[in-house]
């Protein structure tokens, strides 16, 4: 399963909490572990909300709110995309994330991707397995590389 892990903090810490070299190093080491565990698919840091904008839809009206989002409870500062076996596995990895040395609030929100496989109740395993086999054979016909074609 794929999960998106959102790194969140509070708006008041957004501009003031400047990461130290140690924190950068700790984060780099953590990223390295994620890569070596083979679970990392993507990840990026985001600029503070002072550089951001929000498009809000409410009551049939559309408005644009410029950052910083001082009213927000939590601000997303970055994200990862991991491939893991279970939500529990993602949680265990998230718990290993380096924390703010001064104990400032931070949270990692782990959201599994909605997979198309989730729609699969209407077809039985037998059907799927048979058709997947057929698909594999047809792949060859369509000039696609794959196990069956080499």
């Amino acid at each position: 399963m794929k999960v998106m892990v959102m790194v969140t903090g509070t708006p008041k810490d957004e501009e003031t909490a400047v990461p130290t070299t140690e924190m950068f190093e700790a984060m780099a080491a953590y990223n390295e572990r994620l890569i070596k565990a083979g679970i990392m698919l993507d990840g990026a840091g985001l600029k503070p909300s002072s550089k951001a904008a929000r498009v809000v839809f409410e009551g049939g009206k559309t408005s644009v709110v410029d950052g910083p989002f001082t009213e927000a409870k939590e601000i997303i500062g970055g994200y990862w995309i991991w491939q893991v076996d279970s939500l529990e596995e993602a949680v265990e990895w998230a718990k290993q994330c380096p924390t703010d040395p001064e104990g400032r609030y931070g949270a990692l929100e782990i959201r599994p991707y909605a997979e198309t496989e989730d729609f699969g109740d209407e077809y039985t395993p037998e059907l799927r397995e048979k058709e997947a086999q057929l698909a594999e054979e047809l792949r060859t016909q369509r000039g696609e590389a794959g196990s069956a074609s080499v």
Binding site: E122, Y123, R128, E131, A132, L138, R142, E144
Partner: peptide, 12 residues
Amino acid sequence: ARVGPNGEAVML
């Protein structure tokens, strides 16, 4: 994408 809603194989 390779299996259709009725379980049929979908070609590339």
